[in-house]
């Protein structure tokens, strides 16, 4: 599936390159498009390889590290797609925080996966069906990078025109997130807040208890994992 996506990205890059060639120097545009296609194919191939390695790996520590590498590759893909904001989030959350949290989880549980369950037939069937459904769903999508896809013709032009008219900050992503769609972002912040509170409640077993245990910690904490350097 990933390779199919790579092929699609490749053909679309060619199409984009062809479109750009009309405006600029044709040879130069073709070289740029080819280089981008090449980088993209390498990245997506590496992603597929990492996914296979994660499936085969039984040591969960290795899985966590591979997942971090996967996130960094994904961030590189996002940079290649000119989505720098998303790349930054992917690198910091996917490769940074979630790796730390997963390692902390491994510390609390166990770092070796249990032996395989009795039968792999049902899980294999489920994942094949889900994968096929996803691949079938992509058929209905507009071609990658096409300019007149519904998402580019609905509200996006209004945002761009409006920010141009009022000379708003040049990073329209920030303007859309915090201004045009401020209410959505308020909802997203609330989601982060709710998720954080949920995790804290699960791990600490309620506010009252956590407050008590913290008092104890501060009073007679024997520092085992650090010192005054």
């Amino acid at each position: 599936m990933i390779l199919a996506a790579a092929e699609r990205a490749g053909t679309v890059e060619h199409a984009a390159g062809a479109a750009a060639a009309v405006q600029k120097d044709p040879a130069m545009a073709a070289v740029t498009a080819n280089a981008e296609t090449f980088v993209m194919m390498i990245l997506l191939t590496l992603l597929a390889a990492i996914t296979l390695a994660i499936i085969r790996q039984r040591n969960l520590f290795g899985v966590v590290i591979l997942a971090g590498i996967y996130s960094f590759l994904m961030a590189s893909v996002m940079i290649a797609l000119d989505a720098v904001d998303v790349a930054m989030t992917e690198a910091s959350v996917g490769a940074g925080i979630s790796t730390v949290v997963l390692l902390a989880t491994l510390y609390l549980t166990d770092s070796v996966e249990y032996p395989r369950p009795r039968s792999v037939a049902i899980p294999l069937f489920v994942s094949l069906v889900v994968g096929a459904a996803l691949a079938w769903g992509t058929i209905g999508l507009p071609a990658f990078g096409i300019a007149d896809a519904p998402i580019h013709t609905h509200v996006a032009p209004t945002y761009i025109e409006y920010s141009k008219k009022h000379e708003m900050p040049p990073n329209i992503v920030t303007a859309v997130l915090a201004d045009f769609r401020g209410f959505d972002t308020l909802g997203e912040t609330t989601v982060v807040f709710t998720a954080g509170i949920g995790v804290l409640l699960l791990l600490q077993g309620g506010w009252r208890k956590s407050h008590n245990s913290r008092r104890d910690d501060e009073d007679n904490e024997l520092d085992t994992d650090g010192d005054e350097a």
Partner: peptide, 20 residues
């Protein structure tokens, strides 16, 4: 957004570490 995200991430980390 910064205050909530930063606080949530650090609090989650503390919760994991204290649990251990």
């Amino acid at each position: 957004v910064l205050v909530t995200v930063c606080g949530t991430m650090i609090a989650m980390f503390y919760a994991f570490v204290e649990r251990g």
